[in-house]
């Protein structure tokens, strides 16, 4: 992240100093403003979903979901600490269902949990790649936009999208399996 951030910011600012220096600060501030707008949105989205998750945890339903997904998780991530397995299961289920507000809190908790243990590089990499390549089944934001714009058949992109996202996830999983060592 540091390399990318450094490189992009240095080059962009250098170019802007030559082209139009007055845009540098305004661009950075507008970036900050967008971040704040998004954060405010995230507060209430997370509040609702984390409320639901608290119920899931207190009733023991999350443990049941985790138990159900444990064999699949073991196949992908190797042996996992129990708590990490819980969070990963909830994150993956939310991902598949396309509940983007719910994936991030569980994802961060899963990684924080894995950080407490040693030799979890493989599991963390696999988990990140699965999240980054998206396993969403229904592309709901795209569907909403298409029907808003009066598409003749908004849902005709569902199948291609599922195939494409499946492919990206499978390629990602294979690359992790090939290039990252299980310690």
């Amino acid at each position: 992240m540091n390399v990318i951030f450094g490189a992009v910011v240095i080059i962009s600012v250098a170019v802007l100093i030559i082209k139009n220096p007055e845009n540098v600060l305004s661009a950075m501030l507008s970036g900050g403003e967008k971040a704040l707008t998004l954060s405010l949105k995230l507060v209430f989205i997370y509040a609702v979903w984390m409320g639901i998750f608290e119920l899931l945890e207190n009733t023991g339903l999350s443990k049941k979901i985790a138990k159900l997904l444990r064999p699949a998780n073991r196949l992908l991530f190797g042996e996992l600490p129990e708590k990490a397995n819980d969070f990963i299961s909830l994150n993956v289920s939310a991902n598949i269902l396309g509940i983007s507000g719910a994936t991030t809190p569980m994802g961060i908790k899963a990684i924080a949990e894995l950080d407490k243990h040693k030799k979890t590089d493989y599991a963390v990499t696999m988990f990140f790649v699965i999240n980054a390549t998206s396993v969403q089944i229904i592309p709901s934001s795209v569907l909403a936009l298409r029907s808003q714009m009066n598409s003749a058949n908004p849902s005709d992109i569902i199948l291609p999208t599922i195939l494409a996202t499946l492919l990206s996830t499978i390629i990602g999983i294979l690359l992790v399996k090939i290039f990252v060592k299980k310690k």
Partner: peptide
């Protein structure tokens, strides 16, 4: 996560505007 969002958004804005 707010600080991370700020950095990412500043990055994208600069990338775009430059």
């Amino acid at each position: 996560i707010f600080p991370c969002l700020v950095s990412i958004f500043v990055l994208t804005e600069l990338f775009e505007i430059s």
